[in-house]
Computed example of a mutant assay.
Amino acid sequence: MTAEQLISFARGAPSLDIVDVAGLQAAAVRALETDPVGATAYGTSVGYLPLRRWIADRHGVPAEHVLVTNGSLQADAFLFDALLSSGDAVVVEEPTYDRTLAGLIDRGCQVHAVPLAPDGIDVDALRALLESGIRPKLAHIIPNYQNPAGVTLSVDKRRSLLSLAAEYGFTIFEDDPYVDIRFRGQELPTLLSMAGDAGATVVRASSFTKTVCPGVRVGYLVGPAQLLASIATTATNLYISPGMFAQATVHQFCVSGDFDKSVATVSAALAERARILGEELTAQIPGVRFTAPDGGYFLWIEFGEDVDADRVAAVAAEHGVAVVKGSDFIRGGGRHALRLAYSAVTTERIPEGVRRLAESVKAVRG
């Protein structure tokens, strides 16, 4: 099957038609014209300094509290290596991002999964876990338009989570690459911005992958200066510096105003795709359940126990539609769920993609 025939709901990446290629081209030219040395030299492990300052200003922190990396997944890895050792307890959401889950398991961490509700992590279940004697070093939280579930952590639950972190002494890792892709509702305060009042420690990560384009591979951490200085030493030994040209290009893209335009374009396009996907799923697959996301890239769908989603994913591939099975995101579970990424599928192709998926579900049920 050719790439043109395949309809992929598998990867959370924007399709080319909503990437501002012209804006990126102009930003790259400006980066070379305005700062040829900075854009082409090695730089330092903290990242391209003008972009570091732009991110710091955006979060209301000193630049020393920002480290720019080659994508946010690398930021995750740096943080895990700095804070965690084999055997340490870590809290994650259930379901959670499969690569984060794999990274924690590979490091020998004791992973404790806490269920998600439509308004985010079940803080009562988390408190019960803590009261049982579990003492995590870290809680990994995706607060906005969670991957894979698409849900958003409510303000009340943000306060409760911060209170628990302060009471039991664990760090919250606020992994937030989707925050800018909002379809409806008001912008919610970040956990980082609320941490001081609660007396909690929060380290925040985000990325330009979802708002600019995946190819730039620019992410970042915001957190305590001493922790980031330690990570910077590790980064220096690993690669001297991240990609300065990519970061200089992103900086020019941001300061020109093209970043805000790109966010608006991507958000509008994905809102329409999410709406159509939800309507088609409801119309074509009886009994399917999901929570419509308020933003982001993903829809988590659940079937009854008569549908083995692992088998559906395999049959769907034969029908020319790619999905990700729910069992990738839950250890020992998720066998009746799938994650659908609507970001790379145009509105014209979504109905056909759902039709193929519906045929696959029927085949498995049959």
Rank of each mutant, 00 (worst) to 15 (best):
S15K: 13
P293N: 01
F303T: 02
E359V: 03
S8W: 06
R275G: 12
D306R: 14
A149S: 15
T346K: 10
G287M: 10
D106V: 12
Q5S: 15
G169H: 09
G12I: 03
V321W: 00
G169R: 12
T190V: 05
T171Y: 04
I301F: 06
Q146T: 10
A363C: 08
T233W: 02
Q5K: 15
I142G: 03
S206A: 15
R182A: 03
L116R: 13
V324K: 10
G278S: 14
L299A: 04
R356P: 01
P224M: 01
A166S: 15
A117Y: 13
V321T: 02
G71N: 08
H319L: 07
R331H: 01
E359K: 10
E280P: 00
A268C: 05
R331L: 07
V46I: 11
S343G: 15
S206I: 07
A205T: 14
R127N: 11
D180Y: 10
L277S: 11
L6S: 04
Y239Q: 15
K157I: 08
G333M: 04
A344K: 12
E64V: 00
S343Q: 14
L192I: 03
I181K: 09
M1H: 02
A117F: 12
L116H: 09
L101Q: 00
N70V: 04
A341M: 08
P50S: 11
R289M: 10
D35N: 13
N70T: 05
F208T: 00
